Simulated scan of single mutants.
Amino acid sequence: MARAENKETAGPATRLVANVARNMRVQKGWTQEQLGSEIGFTGAAVSAMETCAQPASDQMLVELERVLGGGTGIFEEARTHVRLDKYPAQFKNYALLEQKAVGLSLYATLVVHGLFQTEEYARALIGGGDPPLPEERVEELVEARMSRRVLFNREPVALIELILEESVLRRTIGSEEVMRAQLLYLVECGRRRNVTLQALPLDCGLMGEHAGAYGEMNLVETPEHDHLVYLEPQEEALLIKDPAKVSTYAQRYAKIRAQALGPRESLGLIERLAGDQQ
């Protein structure tokens, strides 16, 4: 069931798609049920999209472009912006930076970084959050999170580094089956030529040093080669642009990288942990 509150909080791209699709449908003389039949959705789904009760999914936008777009590309162009409308407010600015970045250096301490999550892992994580979310909102957020994967295959290529605490790899989210699939997906990602994946071992602090003690971070290099840091403590957002502060985070990240296992050792550890989930 679509959420009524979406009608009041829908973003500009969601509203634009709703208005354009409605006007094009009316010009063709189609009912909502007829348009739904043409694009493979129910009339109720078309109604929810047109009233902004439920933003159009990626697949719906693809089909709207095919059936109504007429070569204009308007629904295709809207896909990125509708995705942004689905993100939590504090994440939207970073989402734009992430998709345009030429380089990302990521450090995750509690759960697998969102960019690297499987659909099942993300659904278990989002659905198990507090306060509980309606099922429709969970699916909306899962879809939005999965859409971030386009960065892996984007041209020009983005160089992505991810350091995960070993505890993240050992923490079961959802079920053993879900976790095993997540671990195997990390291995798949780590074998990409534009991805470097490392694990920070549990015993990294035995000598009294743990450079990652202050928590996770996202370092971003923009197409203009500016360097930024994004932090998200307790669902709050902090975007740091000051060069001196960014330099401090970059140095800290370099230390964390030095304390982590090498990429080959890290993938070996993840594969062994995946085997333990069987």
Rank of each mutant, 00 (worst) to 15 (best):
E265R: 09
N194C: 11
E221W: 00
G11Y: 00
T118P: 10
R192M: 15
M217S: 02
L200E: 10
Q234Y: 14
A211K: 09
A2F: 09
Y94G: 06
E166S: 10
E176T: 15
E77A: 11
A213I: 11
M1K: 03
Q198D: 13
E209W: 12
G268Q: 07
D226N: 12
V111C: 13
Q277I: 07
I126V: 01
Y87Q: 14
I39R: 01
Q234P: 01
Q198L: 11
A89P: 03
E161V: 04
E76G: 06
A78T: 06
D58M: 13
F75Y: 15
P88K: 09
A211R: 13
R193E: 15
D58K: 14
G11Q: 11
N23L: 12
M217V: 00
T109R: 09
P201V: 05
G129N: 07
N23V: 11
L84S: 03
N153R: 13
A101K: 03
A89F: 11
R192L: 14
L231Q: 08
A158K: 06
L141G: 01
A56L: 10
L151R: 13
L197P: 01
G70R: 00
A274R: 08
L231N: 12
L84D: 08
M207E: 07
Y253K: 09
R264C: 02
G212R: 07
L164G: 04
E155W: 01
R79C: 01
W30Y: 09
L202K: 05
R83H: 11
A48I: 09
E235P: 02
K86M: 15
G129M: 04
E188V: 01
A56G: 10
E136L: 08
L68I: 00
A211E: 12
A250Y: 10
A45E: 14
V195H: 03
V195G: 03
A10P: 03
W30I: 04
G262C: 01
R3K: 06
R25L: 10
R15E: 07
A10T: 01
V157S: 13
R252V: 00
F75D: 00
L239R: 07
M1H: 06
D130A: 14
I74G: 10
L267V: 02
E8W: 03
G262T: 04
Y107V: 11
G129T: 02
D85H: 04
A18F: 05
M60L: 02
T109C: 14
D58Y: 15
R66K: 15
P243C: 06
R3Q: 15
P223Y: 02
E166Q: 15
V229C: 05
A21Q: 07
V17H: 14
K255G: 05
G29T: 06
Y121H: 11
N93W: 08
Q234E: 12
K28C: 10
D85M: 05
G36L: 05
E139S: 11
A101C: 03
M146T: 05
D242H: 08
L183C: 07
G36N: 07
Y249T: 05
V142E: 03
P55Y: 08
Q59M: 12
R137S: 10
I126A: 09
